[in-house]
Computed example of a mutant assay.
Amino acid sequence: MRGDRLYYLPENSFDFTPLNVLRPGILLGEFKKNRFEPDYSLAASLKPHEAKLNISLSSKTNEADKYIEGYTLNFDLEDGWYLVDVDGYSLSWGKMSKGILKNYFPKALRW
């Protein structure tokens, strides 16, 4: 933990505690208002089958383009955080709320 951010470090890594390091490992996510919000770097490091909740899109559909452009998508799924992948490649997170998948793909990477 560094502040409200949770990082992953391999077991045999160097002890960063006494140093002021910008990113001491892979950022897993951040605690905001008593909830955990997963980070893009965690999504990028996972394979689709490693996430409990996953939405797989095909590059041949309009949905994948819309997601990469930053739009929300509609699905009839339970609420929660979903790892979104296209053709088996993890993209980012989406937060499902009342049938709407809110897009958490980084704005700098959108088309």
Score class of each variant (00 low, 15 high):
1 M>F: 07
2 R>P: 00
2 R>H: 05
4 D>E: 08
6 L>I: 13
7 Y>V: 02
8 Y>R: 07
9 L>I: 11
11 E>Y: 11
11 E>P: 09
11 E>T: 12
12 N>H: 12
13 S>G: 03
13 S>L: 05
14 F>Q: 07
17 T>A: 00
18 P>F: 00
19 L>S: 00
19 L>M: 02
19 L>K: 06
20 N>E: 07
22 L>T: 13
22 L>C: 11
22 L>I: 11
23 R>T: 09
23 R>E: 11
23 R>Q: 13
24 P>L: 10
24 P>N: 10
25 G>M: 03
26 I>D: 00
26 I>L: 14
27 L>R: 04
28 L>T: 09
31 F>N: 14
31 F>H: 12
31 F>G: 09
34 N>F: 14
35 R>G: 06
35 R>L: 12
38 P>G: 09
39 D>P: 05
39 D>V: 08
39 D>T: 07
39 D>H: 08
41 S>T: 04
41 S>V: 02
41 S>A: 03
42 L>P: 01
42 L>D: 01
42 L>G: 01
42 L>T: 01
44 A>L: 05
44 A>W: 02
46 L>I: 08
46 L>D: 04
48 P>V: 10
49 H>E: 15
49 H>S: 13
50 E>S: 06
51 A>N: 07
51 A>C: 13
54 N>G: 15
56 S>C: 08
56 S>M: 14
56 S>Y: 08
56 S>E: 14
59 S>M: 04
59 S>P: 01
60 K>N: 02
60 K>M: 02
61 T>M: 04
61 T>R: 12
62 N>Y: 10
62 N>T: 04
63 E>M: 13
64 A>N: 10
65 D>T: 12
65 D>I: 13
66 K>Y: 12
67 Y>C: 05
67 Y>S: 05
70 G>M: 11
70 G>D: 05
71 Y>V: 08
72 T>V: 07
72 T>K: 11
73 L>H: 03
74 N>K: 10
74 N>M: 03
74 N>Q: 09
75 F>V: 07
76 D>G: 02
76 D>L: 04
76 D>W: 06
77 L>Q: 07
78 E>A: 12
81 W>T: 11
82 Y>V: 11
82 Y>H: 07
82 Y>P: 00
83 L>D: 00
84 V>Q: 00
84 V>T: 01
86 V>S: 04
87 D>W: 06
88 G>K: 05
92 S>I: 04
93 W>L: 06
94 G>N: 09
96 M>R: 06
99 G>H: 07
99 G>T: 06
99 G>I: 07
102 K>S: 13
102 K>G: 11
103 N>E: 09
103 N>D: 12
103 N>T: 13
104 Y>R: 10
106 P>Q: 14
106 P>T: 15
107 K>M: 15
108 A>C: 15
109 L>M: 14
110 R>K: 15
110 R>L: 13
